[in-house]
Amino acid sequence: MEKKDITIVGKLGEDYNRPYVCKECGGIMIFKGVGEYECEECRYLAYDDYGKARNYIEKNPGATSGEISEKTGVSQKAIRQMLRESRLEIASDSKTFMKCGICGANIRHGTLCEKCAVSYHRNVEEQERAKRALAGYGMDFKKRDDGAMHFIKAEQNK
């Protein structure tokens, strides 16, 4: 089987370099979990960007994004995206923080602090409830101009 370089773009347009084809034998890589992939032919293990970053952090707690990027080859842009997606978290003893997208508070992962996230989701839920309250049963029913009932005549069913 011919070896191919295949790259799929992640959900937010970010390239996480998922291995689809085995570098060793050209077999198909099967997802095993937590960024790990195994070749179904030769059992070679490979990692996507998340798996590489996560493994490095587990072995080197408190590593900076620059260090992770340098040692694993994962771009700092991809690391920032993983922080925004809450796939990674800034260490609790770090003086580095990200900012909440609403109030500007310091956060360690995601895009919103806990307080703003709760408020935001409550607002979305209230808007959905308001939409559903207006969309009652039969709202799309169209009346006939002559006011007659809508019945099917017996001869139409034959």
Rank of each mutant, 00 (worst) to 15 (best):
R122Y: 08
I68L: 05
N55A: 15
I107W: 02
C22L: 06
Y16G: 01
E85T: 02
R132W: 11
M1K: 15
A91N: 09
K11P: 09
Y20P: 00
L134K: 14
T96A: 15
K153S: 10
R80M: 07
N17G: 08
S69L: 01
F31K: 13
E155Q: 12
Y50R: 04
L112G: 01
T96M: 11
H109S: 13
A130Q: 14
T72K: 02
G33N: 07
H121F: 12
K143L: 13
K3H: 15
A46Y: 04
M82L: 08
I107Y: 01
G73R: 03
K158L: 13
Y137P: 11
T111H: 03
A148R: 11
C100E: 06
A78F: 01
Y120Q: 09
G26R: 09
G110I: 00
M139R: 14
A130C: 05
R80E: 08
D93K: 07
A46Q: 13
G10F: 02
G33C: 08
I102A: 09
V34E: 15
G147I: 00
V21S: 05
V124Y: 08
I57N: 07
K4W: 10
K52A: 03
E125K: 14
E36R: 15
C100M: 03
E2C: 02
R84I: 00
A135E: 12
Q81D: 09
Y16D: 04
E125A: 14
P19W: 03
A53I: 04
Y37K: 04
T64I: 06
K158Y: 13
K131E: 14
A135I: 07
T7N: 04
E24P: 00
I57T: 07
G10I: 00
I57R: 05
Q156E: 15
V118R: 06
T111C: 00
F97L: 00
F141E: 12
N17I: 00
N157C: 15
R43M: 10
K3R: 15
Y56L: 07
N123M: 10
H150R: 14
K131R: 14
N17P: 00
C42T: 06
R144W: 06
D48N: 08
G136W: 10
E85C: 03
I28R: 11
K131Q: 10
E41H: 10
E85Q: 10
G73C: 01
G110H: 00
E2N: 12
T96V: 13
E67I: 08
K131L: 13
F151W: 10
M29N: 04
C113F: 02
E38Q: 13
G136N: 09
V21C: 07
A130R: 14
M149C: 09
S86R: 06
K4N: 10
M149H: 11
T72S: 03
I8K: 11
K115A: 03
G110M: 02
R80G: 05
E2V: 13
I79A: 01
C39R: 05
Q127S: 09
E14A: 09
T64F: 08
G73M: 04
Q76C: 06
M29W: 05
M82H: 02
L134Q: 12
K59P: 00
Y37N: 07
Y50K: 02
C39M: 05
A78G: 02
C39T: 06
F151R: 11
K71P: 02
I68M: 05
E2G: 10
Y44I: 11
R129N: 15
I30L: 14
P19Y: 05
K71F: 05
T64R: 07
N55F: 06
